[in-house]
Design a protein around this nucleic acid. Structure first.
Length: 638
RNA sequence: GCUGAUGUGGCGCAAUGGUAGCGCAUCUGAUUUGUAAUCAGACGGUUGCAGGUUCAAGUCCUGUCAUCAGCUCCA
């Protein structure tokens, strides 16, 4: 028989040859390096036999799929080690993930850090003995008997269609249900480390039992593992919680409450600049700014439905409005967890004409959500935060253009900060309101808008809000975590429940379409991600302190203050570092504060009305006339 | 909320069950400096909180609060 290689050449082979035979026929070196194969694009085990006319590719550790195969295989090695140390262990699943792998297990108690060491040592033994992975194909019935007494595995088998061909892999005396493929033997595992252990719900369902999850990382060389460890350490240095404190951005205090950031002067400045920058852009784009209350009578939350859907996650309180103070006339209020009701009430306050649409309200709205204690995380997930929230009321035929304009705004803002992002469209969930035709139309408009905007998207089937479909924009942070920032949502709930209408051209009444959108999402979350992204070195226009004027000796303080005043007149944020310290120490301080420019001034500069400019990344960039430098600061005004 | 780990001056760290130390920062004094940290002195904590074990607890135990790493969740 004949097969095709990726380069297009043909190869003659004996009937019943396997992928491994193909590798061997190309060369002994390749046969040794082969991890798995690809038949017509599908990743398969080396033992898989090839059919006449198929295209066969050999996967080696240079291939893009190789790390996943290695990591998944290392998860099996770990499972085998656990099986020999804890014979009664039950196994869940053990996939490859970004940078590593995990395996969910149950040994009747929690895994301790010491266990991790023991398991790792056992794994080293298995790796040293170059144990082979052996693949076997069985039917459902056989699989059931092989995994007798392993309820977690049996549950997985039970969910497979009855005609499925199941592959199992054995590694020594450890047998696992697995699609494969795997490395030929454990000798390929060159560098791995067990990194952490945590609880994880079986099948990701919080109603079900919690298993022990062990995480590890695996690489093809010790060097790669070291680089990875370095990368993690570097990422920790730029953690926004550490930098947030060091740069005077924000603090937390137990006494204030969990998840409630307090902004220090630098943080307040940055947030105000971000807001003003966006505000000006939004005016250009046809938005109107509004301001709405932080608390609403509970009746509003009842009408919107939030009272019933989110009561546990909202802050409610009662006020006695009677003169007798006998709680006879108690009113209930709720802190807003989102800004929609205010904007909806504003819309409904006037009779709206089709000519008014689209009507775009925006607000920097501070909201409070009682997030569960385990999820609060610095600025990235706080209980009080400010959304750059907007609601657009429009006609059905305007939805597309509005969403395209929003995507354009996302592009502009993320591009300004150098973020790359991905888009996901979430569709109708099983429990939802609004008729199917509307859902279909709305979802199509979102897809069309992405296409019109040349934005690739993934579909999150059934993951939309109960009130409408949405586009979520996720950006990547320094440690490689993805965070949801921008969101564009269609809402069928509010217009219905608050009976919003507009007068049509033919004097009829129609219900407007309502779009929610936030670009930063939460300003604090965005700032947190931005700090990590830039290692705290905010661009000149956004830096809380733009210029540190550094007099060399006390006698230069007067000129330093003159420089400061000149630059403040140019709109700059400037401070004179006149502490009784050597210049070098002042520079060190300014560098640590990530101040974009340090201006060293001494006799020469005072004489010539100039400044010696030091840029935080470039270092000393030479002397400039003060007026010249002032222009630079002027240009950085938003 | 769940699983696990951790909690020592403002920050970063130390202290075989036996008198809580160090560096940075702060304050005072000296020094007046040319591109990443001048010198000296001083101040500052009873070890998250509440119980318990012990002759003796930062150290051991219980509870609780908070933080961290995950899981679940994120209108």
């Amino acid at each position: 028989m004949e097969i095709k290689l990726p380069d297009g050449s043909l190869k003659e082979l004996a009937e019943g040859s396997s992928v491994a035979d193909v590798a061997a026929s190309i060369g002994a070196g390749l046969a040794k390096a082969a991890l798995a194969g690809k038949i017509n694009g599908d990743i398969v085990d080396l033992s898989e036999s090839v059919q006449d006319g198929a295209t066969v590719e050999i996967i080696t550790n240079k291939s893009t799929e190789a790390l996943d195969i290695l990591r998944h295989s290392t998860a099996h090695v770990m499972a085998a080690a656990i099986k020999s140390l804890f014979p009664d262990a039950q196994f869940g699943i053990g996939p490859a993930i970004e940078d590593g792998f995990y395996y969910d297990i149950e040994i009747g108690r929690s895994i301790t850090p010491e266990d991790l060491q023991t398991i790792e040592a056992k794994m080293q033994e298995l790796v040293a003995s170059a144990l082979p992975f052996t693949r076997k194909v069985v039917d459902i019935t056989e699989a059931r008997s092989l995994f007798e007494g392993q309820p977690l595995k049996l549950e997985l088998i039970d969910e497979m269609p009855s005609e499925t061909v199941i592959s199992v892999y054995s590694l020594g005396d450890f047998l696992d249900l697995c699609k494969g493929p795997h490395i030929a033997n454990t000798g390929f595992v060159a560098a791995f480390k067990l990194t952490k252990q945590a609880g994880a719900y079986w099948r990701g369902d919080s109603e079900r039992q919690m298993l022990q999850r062990i995480y590890g990382t695996a690489w093809f060389s010790k060097k790669d593992l070291e680089d990875y460890t370095m990368r993690i350490e570097e990422a920790e240095k730029r953690d926004h919680r550490k930098l947030g404190r060091e740069l005077g951005i924000y603090m937390m205090d137990e006494r204030a409450g969990v998840g409630l950031p307090l902004y220090m002067p630098n943080g307040a400045r940055v947030i105000r600049i971000l807001q003003e920058w966006l505000r000006r852009d939004l005016y250009k784009r046809g938005y109107e700014e509004v301001i709405t209350p932080h608390i609403y009578n509970a009746d509003v939350w009842k009408q919107s439905g939030h009272y019933y859907f989110y009561k546990d996650n909202m802050y409610f309180f009662q006020v006695d409005e009677s003169e007798e103070k006998d709680m006879s006339k108690v009113s209930e209020f709720g802190l807003k967890p989102m800004n929609c009701p205010g904007h909806v009430l504003l819309y409904g306050n006037e009779l709206r004409s089709y000519r008014d649409l689209p009507l775009r309200f925006f607000e920097f709205g501070t909201v409070y959500r009682h997030e569960m204690s385990g999820v609060v995380h610095g600025l990235l997930r706080a209980r009080g935060f400010t959304q750059d929230d907007a609601h657009v009321f429009c006609r059905a035929d305007q939805v597309l253009d509005e969403v395209v304009a929003m995507l354009d705004l996302v592009d502009h803002i993320m591009g300004t900060f150098g973020f790359t992002y991905t888009a996901e469209i979430s569709t109708q969930p099983t429990k939802s309101i609004g008729d199917n035709a509307k859902w279909e139309y709305a979802t199509d408009q979102l897809k069309l808008a992405c296409e019109k905007h040349n934005l690739e998207y993934e579909i999150n089937e059934g993951d939309g809000a109960f009130y409408g479909p949405k586009i979520d924009i996720k950006v990547k942070d320094a440690i490689g975590r993805t965070w949801q920032c921008s969101t564009i949502q269609v809402d069928f709930n509010f217009p219905e429940r608050f009976e919003l209408t507009y007068r049509t051209a033919d004097n009829g009444q129609e219900q407007p379409w309502m779009l929610h959108r936030a670009i930063f999402g939460s300003i604090e979350r965005f700032l947190g991600i931005l700090i990590e992204h830039l290692s705290g070195a905010l661009p000149l226009w956004l830096a809380p302190l733009q210029v540190a004027v550094i007099p060399i000796a006390d006698r230069h303080n007067d000129y330093a203050n003159e420089v400061r005043e000149r630059l403040i007149a140019a709109g700059g944020r400037v401070e004179v570092f006149d502490q009784n310290e050597p210049m070098r120490a002042k520079i060190a301080k300014a560098q640590q504060q990530k101040v974009p420019y340090m201006l060293v001034v001494g006799d020469k500069e005072a004489e010539s009305k100039s400044v010696s400019v030091r840029e935080r990344k470039e270092g000393d960039v030479g002397v400039q006339l003060l007026d010249e430098f002032a222009k630079l600061i002027e240009d950085a005004r938003i």
